[in-house]
Simulated assay, not measured.
Amino acid sequence: MFHRYCVDAGDDAPAMVHVHGFAISGRYLEPTAALLARRYRTFVPDLPGMGRSIRPDPGPDIRGLARALIGYFDVMGIEKATLVGNSLGCPVIIEVATAFPERIERAVLVSPAGGPNNQPLARAIRQMAADGYREPPSMLPIAARDYLRFGALRSLSLFAAMTRYPTLESLPHLVVPTLVVAGRHDPLVRIANAPVLAVLPHVDIVTVPGAHALNFSSPELIADLVEAHMHGDPLVASGPRSVVQQITVDVL
């Protein structure tokens, strides 16, 4: 597995692992990760088959990706970490919490894709296409290169697995303090469609300006929210454009 890491924060600093989205590398997570690397031992791996990591055949499913991530923990000497995921990275984090609960300290789920809102598959493809127009133009060369390398058939298989995975409905498996962040203009995520969130006291939910790839498009905002989550502070972010709304999901 190819990875990026920074341990300048020191051996005693908490570990933080950033988990990227569907068919793409961890490169687009670097803006947020770099802001947090001053206080945390920071790791940004490319999951197997994606980015610059080797491509196993057949490609792993979400459970396989979770196991691979724990294998990365073992190699890097990470006993326990806070996991910060985006899109596909969120179901991977939930799988880690389900199978390896002793390895996760806290969780931050940014734009958690998967589940009924992304079904059927054709609907999810339309949602992803719509999101492409809402992301910064600078995201295009990163995504295009990584998607082409991943391949069309692998993309379709993994994308279908992601859309079938009940990400928000599986949040009860995350018993650690969890922050869910959703962009108000994200066509792939509808927080209000997940009534299970209303009965989980360890989960905080915020909506923010932006679309799906918030770790790339709004790194200062996401870093501020992660810091607040880590320290139990009010979920606010700095800057005039960082309008954060904490929400409560009612049981439908």
Rank of each mutant, 00 (worst) to 15 (best):
L36E: 06
K80F: 14
I94N: 00
D57P: 05
G49S: 03
V19F: 04
R38F: 10
Y72N: 08
P60M: 04
I94Q: 01
T32N: 11
V110M: 10
T98C: 03
S87N: 15
I93P: 00
D74H: 12
G114S: 09
F100D: 06
V108D: 03
I24F: 08
Y28F: 15
D8G: 15
A99P: 02
Y72R: 11
G114L: 03
G85R: 00
P91L: 04
A81N: 11
G26T: 06
C90W: 00
R63W: 08
L69F: 08
V44H: 07
A113M: 07
G115L: 01
F73N: 10
I104P: 00
D12M: 01
E95I: 09
P60V: 04
E102N: 15
S87A: 14
M50N: 09
V19L: 13
K80Y: 13
R55K: 13
F73G: 05
D74W: 14
A34G: 13
G49T: 08
L29P: 02
G77P: 02
D57Y: 13
M16Q: 12
L36W: 02
V108A: 08
S25A: 08
V17G: 05
I78R: 03
R106M: 04
R63L: 14
I54R: 02
V108S: 08
T42I: 11
A81Q: 12
E79W: 10
A33Q: 08
A68K: 07
D57F: 11
A81Y: 07
R67A: 15
G77W: 07
G89S: 13
I93W: 05
S25R: 02
L69Y: 02
A34I: 10
D11K: 11
P45S: 12
A15Y: 03
M50A: 09
V7R: 12
I62K: 12
A107F: 07
C90Y: 05
L109D: 02
E105K: 12
L35N: 06
M16I: 08
V44E: 07
V17T: 14
P56G: 04
I70V: 15
G10P: 03
I54V: 09
E95K: 05
